[in-house]
Design a protein around this nucleic acid. Structure first.
Lengths: 182, 182
DNA sequence: TGACGATATATCGGTCCGATATATAGTTCT
DNA sequence: AGAACTATATATCGGACCGATATATCGTCA
């Protein structure tokens, strides 16, 4: 069996403790791992078929009235595959931050407009912080501590980033004053 | 003119002050914005042609001996397009972190192996920190302060993240002890 | 009854990455 | 001098991934 895609492991992880449909997997991803690992329908549905064919999950038809519905459960092979992946040192670690990119090129703008980039970035981080806080409120007490650890990491990350934006804005204001008076 | 791709603005930003070839653009991206915005040859070369056709950059053939070489410069239209983009509030802000994903599902592993994920993540952050530090050493004093601000943000981010990994490892160790003694 | 939103699956266009192919130029080792 | 290797330079392909859209059924609420 060749290498599975990253999305495959997201699916394995989310069907491990309870059977879920593709739609439910997408929903739970959007409410938990989305901030550091997203997944779209365009990946999920084909991947479910591949995983079922490989015997790592099994699907059962559970229609709701006249609406088709297939929920998937993990198999013993799937559990083993998931654990083997978890044991390998994590590799992918990427960011894609348009704000930092604009800040990088901000010398092309008048200084006051460059500061505006930092203010936008800070506002965005605070908005994400609120979203994460809302998710934290929703979650009750669970025995698995890891999702909550990751979530609180996201919250702390947004706090750090918002604070950094604030400090950099102040720093640029200071250096602008220095130039005029010095 | 329809919307330009994000890569288009990376190119505009990097040919703004000095003419560069596609190869040079790739190299300078890899040594500066790669950590929050990457670009590959598969994007750069087609995008250079589109931008030249749209009149936002101009290419000139500057062969090195018998080796073909085209360097591009920004036009007045290109400068205007770049500034207009810089003035819009940044949108894209994504992460893709396999370590956090594995940590999220780490309940599927024995506790000791789960801690190993945090140790790997911390080691990776420290390694990136060293890379960024090396880049900082290379850069001399320049009058444009923004690339250095972004770079120092990256350094601080790696420090925060490595520290967080360390704290979470300690926290998990503590709670494991509590369970055994409590 | 009709409008609306949630559930459920499928697919398409486009962006982007990583790898590879080709060719030339310069450097280093023997 | 020749071989091997690395750097410069451009082009392209497969695959992963996202966002949007299409289709259809269900429940709810006015």
């Amino acid at each position: 069996m060749e290498q599975l895609s990253a999305t495959a492991y997201v699916i394995l992880g989310f069907v491990r403790n309870e059977p879920r449909s593709g739609y439910e997997i997408k929903a739970v991803v959007d409410n938990s791992t989305r901030f550091f690992w997203a997944a779209s329908y365009g990946q999920i549905y084909p991947e479910l078929k591949r995983l079922a064919e490989a015997g790592l999950i099994v699907g059962s038809d559970v229609p709701t009235g006249g609406r088709k519905r297939t929920v998937y459960e993990i198999t013993a092979d799937g559990e083993e595959e998931l654990r083997a992946w978890l044991r390998q040192a994590p590799d992918t670690f990427e960011m894609r931050d348009e704000g930092l990119l604009k800040l990088f090129f901000a010398d092309a703008l008048p200084r006051e407009e460059a500061l505006e980039i930092l203010r936008s970035m800070r506002a965005k981080r605070l908005a994400v912080h609120e979203q994460l806080e809302a998710i934290r409120q929703m979650k009750g007490e669970i025995d698995d501590p890891f999702p909550m650890i990751v979530l609180s990491g996201g919250l702390e990350y947004m706090e750090w980033f918002a604070d950094w934006c604030e400090r950099m804005e102040a720093k640029l204001l200071d250096s602008a004053l220095d130039e005029r008076s010095g």
